[in-house]
Simulated scan of single mutants.
Amino acid sequence: MLTSLLAPIAAVAALALQAAPAVPAPTPEPMTQEQRALLRCSAAFALVANGQANSDPEATRWPDLGTRGREFFVRTMAQLMDQTGLDRAGISRIAEEHARTLSARGEVGKIMPSCLLMLEASGV
Rank of each mutant, 00 (worst) to 15 (best):
M1A: 15
L5E: 14
L5H: 13
L6Q: 06
L6Y: 00
A7T: 14
A7Y: 08
P8V: 12
P8D: 11
V12F: 06
A14L: 07
A14I: 08
L15Y: 10
A16N: 14
L17C: 05
L17H: 05
L17N: 08
Q18V: 14
A19R: 12
A20P: 00
A20Y: 07
A22N: 06
V23M: 04
V23D: 06
P24T: 13
P24N: 12
A25S: 15
A25N: 14
P26M: 03
E29Y: 11
P30L: 01
T32G: 08
E34H: 10
Q35V: 04
R36P: 00
R36M: 14
A37F: 13
L38H: 15
L39W: 10
R40C: 03
R40I: 09
C41Y: 01
C41P: 01
S42Y: 07
A43Y: 09
A44F: 04
F45D: 04
G51N: 07
A53W: 05
N54A: 15
S55V: 09
S55W: 04
D56F: 10
D56I: 11
E58I: 09
A59N: 02
T60S: 10
T60P: 01
R61L: 05
W62T: 01
W62E: 02
D64A: 14
D64N: 12
D64H: 03
L65C: 01
L65E: 03
G66E: 00
R70F: 13
E71S: 13
F72T: 00
F72H: 06
F72P: 02
F73Q: 07
V74A: 13
V74C: 03
R75G: 15
L80R: 06
L80I: 09
M81A: 12
Q83P: 07
Q83E: 15
Q83K: 00
T84H: 02
G85Y: 01
G85F: 01
L86D: 11
R88W: 04
G90T: 02
G90P: 07
S92P: 03
S92K: 08
I94K: 12
E97V: 13
H98G: 03
H98S: 09
A99T: 13
A99D: 14
L102I: 12
A104F: 06
A104L: 10
A104P: 08
G106W: 00
G106D: 08
G109D: 02
K110A: 15
K110Y: 10
S114V: 08
C115F: 01
M118V: 03
M118S: 11
M118T: 14
L119Q: 07
L119C: 05
L119S: 02
E120M: 12
S122D: 10
G123E: 00
G123Y: 02
V124G: 01
